[in-house]
């Protein structure tokens, strides 16, 4: 009799780790599945100075330059297409109109130093949405011809 009692009352001293393993497995799977978001961006070009002996092809009347003008901190910067003032809402429509009939979809962006970068990115984004393939960044140095 005493034998039977001893074998029947085998108390288990082990911890029940099954829930722990379940949680760990789920965490591992979550970390494996999360892969960092794909980098995204906007294409932009930087005009390089032409080689010194290259023939000049000046067509200044056809160049489109979108200009961002700083209007002080906290204010939305102003936008100009060439010399003509425009609004943020009207920019895309205006650019679409201009580039509808053109074969070379090239545009330049120029901005004041104090304009936040986000606004410049927005302009480039709008330009891409309007169908402009090549957006060049103009800096003061490039304008000076250096």
């Amino acid at each position: 009799m005493s034998m039977a009692v001893g074998s029947g009352g085998g108390q288990n001293a082990d911890m029940n780790v099954t829930p722990l393993i379940d949680v760990l497995l789920v965490l591992i799977i979550i970390f494996m599945v999360i892969n960092p978001p794909q980098p995204k961006g906007l294409d932009a070009l930087v005009p390089q100075p032409p080689p010194p002996n290259a023939p000049k092809n000046n067509t200044p009347d056809r160049t489109i330059v979108v200009q961002l003008i700083d209007r002080g901190a906290g204010q939305e910067p102003g936008v100009k297409i060439n010399q003509e003032d425009t609004t943020w809402d009207g920019l895309q429509g205006r650019l679409t109109d201009i580039f509808k009939t053109r074969a070379e979809k090239v545009m330049f962006v120029k901005g004041d130093d104090n304009v936040p970068f986000a606004d410049v990115a927005t302009v480039i984004d709008i330009a891409h949405a309007a169908g402009v393939d090549k957006v060049g960044l103009i800096t003061a140095k490039i304008e000076a011809g250096g």
Binding site: K40, D43, A44, I124
Partner: peptide, 8 residues
């Protein structure tokens, strides 16, 4: 360099 990628 003449090609830039502005990451956004």
């Amino acid at each position: 360099v003449d090609q830039l990628g502005l990451l956004t």
